[in-house]
Design a protein around this nucleic acid. Structure first.
Lengths: 109, 109
DNA sequence: TCAACCTGTGAAAATCCTGTAAACGCCGGT
DNA sequence: ACCGGCGTTTACAGGATTTTCACAGGTTGA
């Protein structure tokens, strides 16, 4: 599993900072209130900037098991994450959808 | 099937780079936004530079089945691919038509 | 040049995929 | 037991992609 350790804190464009070890994500120094799953998903996406990650890949990283056929959990959490990120950082689209494949995190909008 | 694996990333004349494993094609480092089919077609064509590939050959590689009589899918997608490549790389004609046969990918315009 | 055939491409139709609200169950705290 | 938050799952509307069709324009060879 890849979430619990091994991810260094990262500063993105000076506004979003992710500190996996501290279970925290900050925007302009203020902590976002993310649930565990939301944070895990954000950490995983942010650990692979600009790379298109498949749903399966995201699922196995975050949930630690194989998704069952037609599982939509990743989508649901991406949606919730976007909502929270969108509130703290309007104007930027950090998570991009790649139809038929998955999602991509882009630090710079 | 030949798309999903076995295609190493390739750099073409330094501007176009295709990374099948990552579901990506880049021009000058910027990702082209291609749909799955478009990308598969590009990958297939680019995997056989300078070789004239028949429509049937392209279809079976990309669609994974035999085209039905008079199917024009390959042409439609070649057209779409040309449009997108043409925007990112004007001045070069990467995909050449061979009347009565099929298409040929030529890395150097 | 002409007729027959082939290719390019816009657009409609069909299909597939994604966004997201909502329902539900499970705890932990009160 | 009740409440509130979280995770999971489902459902459905809307969006995106793929497929198919139609026709204009190009190409070939007699």
């Amino acid at each position: 599993m890849a979430i619990s350790s091994g991810h260094p804190p990262q500063q993105l464009d000076g506004r979003l900072e992710i500190r996996p070890e501290e279970h925290a994500a900050l925007v302009d120094g203020r902590p976002l209130s993310l649930t565990m799953r939301e944070l895990q998903l954000l950490v995983t996406l942010a650990a692979n900037p600009q790379r298109i990650m498949t749903r399966e890949e995201l699922f196995t990283e975050v949930w630690g098991s194989q998704p069952r056929r037609d599982d939509r959990s990743v989508d649901v959490y991406v949606s919730r994450l976007r909502a929270k990120l969108g509130e703290a950082l309007p104007e930027m689209r950090l998570i991009h959808t790649h139809n038929g494949i998955g999602y991509r995190f882009s630090p710079d909008g």
